[in-house]
Design a protein around this nucleic acid. Structure first.
Lengths: 189, 189
DNA sequence: TCCAGATACTCAAAAACATGACTAGTCTTG
DNA sequence: CAAGACTAGTCATGTTTTTGAGTATCTGGA
């Protein structure tokens, strides 16, 4: 039920085509929701049918035409309703954690490799999000921006994404270190 | 495709019935996967049909009989295969973050309330996980347990869950504080 | 003694999410 | 100048996850 709201929330940041929206979902929006492009096209079509967004054709030369979508008052009202309704709790759901859970009975080599890869991926994302934060707040310093800057929503969700990635990286590193040390100890006996 | 592996990994910790497994999924396993009881019963039936687990009837007086499941060698081999395959990246997907994203154009009151509620829920879970960690490591101190304790898998995933909840709580608190301060500033103007 | 809650499951349906294949022109880079 | 990536989508199918309702017995507390 919430993909639609994620789309509406993303469209508050400007008018986007399905294609552009997909790119947003690859970066900023990825901090709170994840979806394939096909899903977005489908959802936009539904939202338009329900009057939550309106699309307008933009004719382009030298590349395919596109349809830009804008949130309507109906859509904004729906978001307002959604914001006041209770949220469901959020969980982690992660392949790699399943593997770590089972690590006592499994070969640890591949798991350690994947932990390293994940840590590196998280590190890259941290860099990216750091830059995104700077871009979002312009030339204000953070404290000042938090007090008065706009838009504040995307900034706050981005901070959450950043903290998540940092935590993720740290856990991957320390877990890989623990498993490595145990490998060494086992080899010694 | 990974629920089955989460079930297998959970069953490594001992033999469980569907009902007991559901309780595991409410606590320790919740740190890396989430599923409804109905899903678990269905998955266990499939896994049994495929020979990944075996069930045995346990007759009980004064309460319904149950079927305990154990992972077979086939199941363990499947876990091994899974552990060596590449993992998909993990994302956050959270209703509340969607609301925060849109907060510039919405009434902030309900969002702040929900942030407070979430922070409190996270705090409660932190307590719980703290206790679970102590129980898992017995009387060893943490450093020693990480080096030699067993089983280490559940301990490591539990640490991840704990770090996640702490980060979540902190973000909820600081975000609520930011939004409150901005409300005050807006009222003053 | 009644009622809520725990134990132990089952069945069915709907919603959400993921995957793969396809079209078709343009722009960039080696 | 060819290969590959980018723009801008569509269509179909399959899997996973969620939601709701139901059954039946037993225990513990007001």
């Amino acid at each position: 039920m919430a993909l639609r709201h994620a789309v509406l929330a993303a469209l508050l940041g400007g008018d986007f085509s399905g294609y552009e929206l997909a790119k947003e979902f690859g970066l900023g929006v990825a901090n709170f929701w994840h979806a394939q492009p096909q899903q977005l096209y489908a959802e936009l079509a539904k939202l338009e049918a329900e009057g939550m967004v309106v699309g307008r054709q933009v004719v382009q030369e030298s590349r395919p035409n596109k349809r830009l979508f804008r949130v309507t008052d109906t859509g904004l009202a729906e978001l307002e309703r959604f914001a006041a309704a209770p949220s469901k709790p959020s969980f982690i759901r992660d392949d790699l954690l399943v593997k770590v859970q089972a690590v006592d009975r499994l070969g640890t080599g591949p798991v350690i490799e994947q932990l390293d890869a994940r840590a590196a991926a998280a590190e890259a994302k941290i860099e990216l999000l750091g830059k995104l934060l700077v871009r979002l707040r312009g030339d204000a310093d953070e404290e000042e921006f938090l007090r008065r800057g706009r838009p504040i929503g995307p900034y706050l969700t981005c901070r959450r994404g950043l903290a998540f990635e940092e935590e993720h990286r740290d856990w991957c590193r320390s877990t890989a270190a623990v498993l490595r040390e145990r490998q060494v100890l086992r080899a010694e006996r």
